[in-house]
Structures are given as C-alpha cells and as structure tokens.
C-alpha cells in the first residue's frame, strides 16, 4: 500500500547484507574460539526490545559455534541482574553480554566475574565504572541521540512551542544522558522551543500512559513530546490515537510496535538503532575478548559481521546515528524488528 522508496530498499539491503555478511564473511585476523559459553543478560526478560536484542546475540553465537544462554530477571533492576551474573560465574561462562539496568549496582558483581577471567561486554546500556567491562557497544553517543530527537520534534512543530520528555525510570542512566543532550541541543539550536518538563513512566505501559495524560493536563498547550524509550513512545502514541490530541510525538521506538501509529498518521517520525545489531556486535565483541583478541584500548579495532568497529575513549563503541523511521520505510523495518 505504501510505495517502497529507493532509500528504504537501500536500507533493507544494507541490513540484509549485514546479516548475510555475518554468515559468509571470512574473519580478517584470528577467529574467535568456538565452543565459548556466553551469558546474554538483558535488563529484563519478557521485553520485546530485548527479545530482538537477543536475536542478534544468538545469531552471532551460531556463527561462532558458541553456547549462549539468554537469562535475566523479570523486573529491570540492577540488584535483580546480579543473581544472573552470579549464575554465569558459577557455571563457568567465558563471557557476559549485559544491558545494564543500573549503572552502578551491578559493578561489584561484574568485578567478581572479571576476577574469574570472564569477559564483560555491556551492550545497549553501559555502567559508570568503565574499568569493570572490556568494551561497551552502544547505539550512538548520547549527544547524537539527544540532538537527533530534538531535531525530529523541531521539524514536526515548526521550531517553536513547548515540548516535554516522557522518559523511563528517573534513575535510567542512558535516558538521563540523552535528556541532558536534548537540553544542550535546545539551548544551542532552538531558542523558541521550551522544555516543559521531564516525566517518568518507568518503562511501564500503564504508568507511561498516565504520565502522557498528566503532561496534557498540566500543559494543554504542549506542542510535542519526546519519549526516548520504546515503552514510553508506544504508550504515548496509543494515548494520542485514542484521545485524538494534536501533540507531535517522537522518540525512540521499535518499528514493529510503532508501524500502525506511523501508518495511520498518529506519529510522523521517530527513530531507533537496531537492537539486533547491538546484540550481535556485543556478542561478537565478547567472543573476541574471550578468545584473547580484544582488550580495552582507545583506537583498537575488532570486526563483527565483516564490519570493523573502533573503540573510542573508555572502550566505547558506537554503532552509528539512530535511524529515522517514517511512513516511507516503516513497513519494511517493522518486519525486521
């Protein structure tokens, strides 16, 4: 029904190549050992985003013949993740790929894992103490993510008006970093846009929807809402759809979940990186590390799926800018993740 544009095809092809490349590419240098045991620990199981993330991780494992176990708590808290880090330690895993639900609380447990010669890679969400993991595979720098989201909303509301942020938990580190970046971008580029406030939906659909309504109650003249979390943007879109408000919504969402809202015009554009890629690259990095091919060092490179990645400061690896979705490309992406 929607005409697939050339750009969309290009992206789809690129993604496909990435996927196929993983299967066929010849490793450049020393290949990761086969038969590694890698623990894949999400913030919480039972979450669609991490299901996709795990998809990438499992793909990587298959390629390198590693045994990967997806295990994690039912609620996204650091202390709850610790039990699974311990499980990985006890069961003699070689590496852990983890999306940190708390930037501090899991650090002591990770240190114990390191003491057992277990490689730690954070993927998707990092921890504060960068010495307690080898590399972090992150979507993009906080500055770029924050700035991109502000750019998207500015375009939708005509560069002026009030906007609010509907975030996840007040303690979510990456969200907070993005919000800071948003504030800087607003101050630098959009003097006519004011930030009405930051609201926390705790990555809970119910609470996020309530916060959306709270925003509209408190600021009836609100022009746009940025929700840098998949749960939040989906809840906001659903609320807007059922209430028929004119507020513009953007942020970070899963294409598969957001497709209906983009197609019916509730949401014009939003973005995200590819969680499958995050999981894939993170797991590859973990395998490289466990094979002794990767250490934390600024400028050091490793390959995953035929593509080379370079560590920035403190071992951070960015996958690239968030990708923008709109009615032209959403259908294609919604089939992927």
């Amino acid at each position: 029904m929607v005409k697939t544009s050339l750009a969309t095809k290009a992206v789809a092809v690129t993604l496909g190549v990435l996927v196929i490349a993983g299967l066929t590419a010849m490793p450049a240098q020393a290949a990761p050992k086969s038969g590694l045991k890698i623990a894949i620990i999400p913030k919480a199981i039972n979450n669609g985003y991490f299901t996709a993330w795990n998809k990438g991780a499992q793909k990587a494992c298959k390629e390198i013949s590693a045994t990967c176990k997806y295990m994690g708590p039912t609620t996204a808290t650091g202390p709850a993740q610790v039990a699974f880090i311990n499980q990985a330690i006890q069961q003699g895993y070689n590496a852990i790929v983890i999306s940190a639900a708390d930037q501090n609380a899991i650090t002591p447990a990770l240190k114990k894992a390191i003491a057992r010669k277990i490689c730690i890679v954070t993927s998707d969400a990092d921890i504060t103490d960068t010495k307690s993991r080898t590399v972090a595979v992150l979507p993009a720098s906080s500055e770029r993510i924050g700035a991109a989201e502000v750019d998207w909303i500015a375009a939708q509301i005509g560069n002026k008006g009030k906007v609010a942020v509907l975030s996840a938990a007040a303690t979510a580190a990456n969200q907070n970093a993005w919000i800071e970046a948003m504030k800087r971008q607003l101050a630098a580029k959009y003097p006519n846009i004011t930030l009405a406030g930051v609201y926390y939906g705790d990555d809970d659909a119910t609470k996020s929807a309530q916060q959306y309504n709270q925003i509209l109650t408190e600021h009836p003249d609100i022009a746009g809402i940025i929700s840098p979390t998949t749960v939040g943007i989906r809840a906001a879109a659903q609320e807007k759809k059922s209430k028929g408000s004119k507020v513009a919504i953007t942020g970070l969402g899963l294409p598969s979940e957001m497709a209906p809202y983009v197609l019916d015009g509730t949401v014009k554009e939003f973005g995200l990186w590819n969680p499958i890629d995050l999981g894939y690259v993170g797991t590859m990095a973990a395998a490289e590390c466990a094979s002794g091919n990767l250490k934390q060092a600024t400028g050091a490179k490793f390959t995953a799926g035929g593509k080379s990645y370079t560590q920035g400061a403190n071992g951070v690896v960015y996958l690239g800018d968030p990708y923008k979705f709109d009615s032209s490309n959403i259908v294609a992406f919604s089939k992927i993740y």
């Binding site: 039972n46 979450n47 669609g48 039912t74 609620t75 809970d204 659909a205 119910t206 929807a209 989906r234 809840a235 659903q238 059922s242």
Partner: peptide, 17 residues
Amino acid sequence: LLLGRFSFADATSGLGI
C-alpha cells in the same frame, strides 16, 4: 478494561497495583 485502556499488554501489566 486494562487491555482496552492501553490497547497493550505485556508481562509487566498490572504489576504492583
């Protein structure tokens, strides 16, 4: 009602209410 209210449900629906 919860399902109608949010048009959404996942493993955390109704947690802690």
